[in-house]
């Protein structure tokens, strides 16, 4: 049996608590995600999957409940330690990639290394290695806006894995991609999973949910697990 990676114990997230516009985004969810699993959190817009993935990635604290990652209770960590943990163990791929168009490809992919205090020469070495692996070395000095959609997608993936994370979190990564790019994106995810990463994807795209490499599809509706 695989080792637990992320354990959620009765997690609830309420926005604007006690106010008129209070929203219970995640309601009493318990989950256990194993090491090297590829999991898809599936649900319609507003179901709470983005909030859930943000809490798993230490981007948000729950209102109640406990999140344990690799045996460490992270939901109660003070902000400073949570940020360190996040930098060390997580890679994020956002919807529409959220790259900085004015910066070069190298500068974009090196961004997560700045807060880790890695020296410029080492940063460049790490980024070049990955750019080469993803066939983007010749584009290293290009601005993001000068790249095609597929190239931007690869830059986003490199940026997510450059800090050598153990967990890759992706929020609606294929939402704005055509079929061909979606397929290539999923192939990259497979390759990363094969290299030992755990991949968690929040998506309502059937192409993602039906991808053969996905170990589990967890359905969420109205902030709760749909059993």
């Amino acid at each position: 049996m695989k080792e637990s990676l992320i354990v959620l114990k009765r997690i609830t997230k309420i926005y604007n608590e006690g106010k008129l516009n209070e929203v219970v985004s995640v309601n009493d969810i318990s989950l256990d995600i194993k090491k090297n699993e590829m999991v898809v959190l599936k649900g319609p817009s507003g179901s709470g999957k983005t909030t859930l993935i943000a809490m798993m990635g230490c981007l948000l604290k729950p209102t109640s409940g406990e999140i344990t990652i690799m045996g460490k209770s992270v939901s109660k960590l003070p902000e400073k330690f949570m940020n360190q943990f996040k930098l060390q163990y997580f890679g994020f791929i956002f919807q529409s990639f959220q790259l900085i168009p004015e910066l070069s490809v190298s500068d974009n992919v090196e961004l997560p290394l700045y807060p880790l205090g890695i020296k410029p020469a080492k940063r460049r070495e790490m980024s070049l290695k990955l750019l080469e692996r993803f066939d983007l070395k010749q584009r290293q000095n290009f601005k993001i806006k000068e790249l095609s959609g597929g190239e931007q997608q690869r830059v986003a993936i490199i940026r997510a894995i450059i800090n050598q994370p153990q967990i890759l979190l992706a929020d609606e990564p294929t939402a704005h991609l055509d079929s061909e790019l979606s397929q290539s994106y999923l192939e990259y995810m497979k390759a990363l999973k094969d290299s030992g990463l755990s991949v968690i994807i929040a998506s309502h795209d059937p192409r993602v949910c039906e991808f053969s490499e996905v170990d589990r599809v967890i359905e969420i509706k109205d902030g709760q697990l749909k059993l």
Binding site: K9, R10, T12, K61, P62, T63, S64, S75, K76, E79
Partner: peptide, 17 residues
């Protein structure tokens, strides 16, 4: 009570920051 994961404890942790 740091051992608790209740809404109150989370609020207090936010407050102490």
């Amino acid at each position: 009570d740091f051992e608790q994961s209740t809404p109150l404890q989370y609020k207090l942790e936010k407050k102490t920051y």
